[in-house]
Design a binder for these strands. Structure first.
Lengths: 344, 344
DNA sequence: ATGAAAGCGCTAACAA
DNA sequence: TTGTTAGCGCTTTCAT
């Protein structure tokens, strides 16, 4: 039923190889023949079968894109940008969700390996060893992770965390907290490291809280923990957690930023829609998606195996951060009682 | 370099066809041979090449999922659910974004046709004719659209719109508006139709405003138009537009719900995070994704070509709707001046 | 229960 | 410039 290269050959009175050439190496065929073939192909509704082509060329013109959670608002802009960039270069993309599970991640890469020319691993949760292992089965580009010898696109979140902590300390906060994300996350490690180092350099106190799932729900649940920590300023692993934290704080009648300052990471669309508008570190997710696709599609000779792109982040100050309160939020019970203006 | 069925055959001392059978028809091979083949395959790291298999079986075990805009928060939960359901049944899914463009939609289906066993067309913008046309190239299931003879999963948004308008009129609103979405949208037509019919039945006045792009930005921009319309209650094409409208209204110091009531559609995660929390019609997007995949993967004989699943929607009343003001918002300049309590 | 052989739709030498 | 031929990795008759 489906029309093949052979049908076109017969109908246009040439051999199959000529038809093949018409599509994959047009310059090798006589212009007249070419137009004839093209028009009969058109009229028959012929469409090359990519899978068959892939079988012999070894290039599928497909890409795999693996993310931790499609529904996490951080990813859609990245997926969209990557897909768009890929299609522009005539590639289709498989998208898969690991549910934050490192094992699923691995299986997925292996399952996809034979069907794609490369895989974009976004915010992988598996170990470096596993990633290096998989690299042997299929070209890989990793986003938000640094692995020896694997091409990567990373956002400079360390710089962002530094700016965030400096912002907090500059506002007079002496005790800050980092609300940590999931264990396997490279970004989480970077953030914790940079936040800790910056706080120390500034002579401020930093408490690490977590790990937590990178969800709004986890943020809500962490409110109590944050309050108990005695910190007056909090940097969270991502905006989703920050937004959850804001909710949890609101439920406990803790005023933001008057009693507690909160900074997120990512600058997802949501962060400027909630109240107070979230101060956050903007990460260029769409650019990362595009860059990762470009890297994957680069000819091998151009691609140094260790190639690596670092994208800048930027602190966006909005309304969830303000001057440190005179007394820490934790020094009084989390109630609606207004923070009195006691001396110093 | 990649290990093929032939390598496994040689290493385990059987013919390729036996190896093939071991994977695709295990019951046809002697248990002992089977285990032997399986273990050598395992040790060689053999993975069947799906594309090669597809070439002969005609089944790719891939699905296509086409949406209008990946970054529109309505879609990610649907994509996630569909992908998860598909993978559970050992299918991989291509995801593609049309940017709300009907032409891109068409091209995408055709490009994907040969590589997939079926395509999920979500909220398509193209004409019914085109959809019927494409149906001949590849099995299709359409989400949020009703097309003669095409299997479909739809959400009963008409019912939702009815409930929304009833809610508004019940609160005393006599003049309501429907803020319309994009032209090609079936959901938009349903919504408009149902809203109009319900308003008429209730003796209320309904103005249709639009069409608009289904984005937050469009919602912001529509604030002026809404105010001028004189309506005191608005139903929007989706939550994104409602949220934008809320912003635009806030900028003009129009109080929601005191001066104007707003109802969205979809119940995206965002709608309960913004203030005022959005009253909206919840659509079961994840369920739709799963149902659509199930439909696509159903054996042909079970699938009546006209099969169709309708999912219920539900009005979720939150804080963006309230009693109608004594006077319409439009009867006074859009300023911060409080709505005076003039007689009746 | 297993082997032999043909062929899915296409490309890629090699010849002509 | 075009045709011939082999074969990508796999499944599927048909024999054995």
């Amino acid at each position: 039923m489906p029309v093949t290269i052979r049908d076109v050959a017969r109908a246009s009175g040439v051999h199959v190889s000529t038809v093949s050439r018409t599509f994959s190496a047009p310059h090798l065929v006589n212009p007249e023949t070419r137009t004839r073939v093209l028009s009969t192909a058109e009229s028959l509704g012929y469409r090359p079968n990519r899978a068959a082509r892939a079988l012999i060329t070894g290039r599928t013109h497909n890409l795999g894109l693996i993310v931790a959670d499609i529904a996490n608002p951080f990813f859609p802009p990245l997926i969209k940008a990557a897909e768009s960039q890929a299609r522009q270069r005539d590639y289709h993309v498989f998208v898969a969700d690991t549910n934050e599970d490192a094992l699923v991640e691995e299986e997925l890469v292996q399952a996809l390996a034979k069907q794609v020319d490369g895989v974009l691993l976004c915010s992988p949760r598996m170990s470096n060893d596993h990633i290096e292992q998989l690299r042997r089965e299929v070209p890989l580009v990793v986003v938000n992770r640094l692995v020896e010898g694997i091409p990567a696109v990373v956002m400079d979140v360390a710089q962002g965390a530094k700016a965030a902590i400096e912002h907090l300390v500059g506002l007079g906060h002496r005790h800050v907290a980092y609300l940590a994300g999931p264990r396997g996350s490279w970004t989480n490690r970077e953030l914790r490291r940079a936040a800790t180092a910056t706080a120390r350099a500034l002579g401020a106190n930093l408490t690490v809280l977590g790990p937590h799932q990178p969800t709004e729900t986890a943020g809500v649940g962490a409110a109590e923990q944050v309050l108990r920590s005695g910190a007056t300023g909090v940097l969270t692993y991502n905006d989703l957690m920050a937004i959850g934290l804001l909710e949890g704080l609101h439920d406990r009648a803790v005023k933001v930023p008057e009693q507690l300052s909160v900074i997120g990471i990512d600058d997802i669309a949501l962060s400027r829609l909630i109240r107070p508008k979230l101060t956050t570190v903007a990460t260029p997710t769409a650019a990362a998606g595009r860059a990762a696709v470009d890297m994957l599609l680069q000819p091998d000779d151009d691609r140094r195996t260790t190639a690596q792109v670092t994208l800048q982040t930027e602190l966006v100050v909005r309304d969830s951060t303000g001057p440190a309160p005179r007394r820490t939020a934790a020094s009084r019970p989390p109630s609606a009682t207004p923070v009195g203006s006691l001396k110093e």
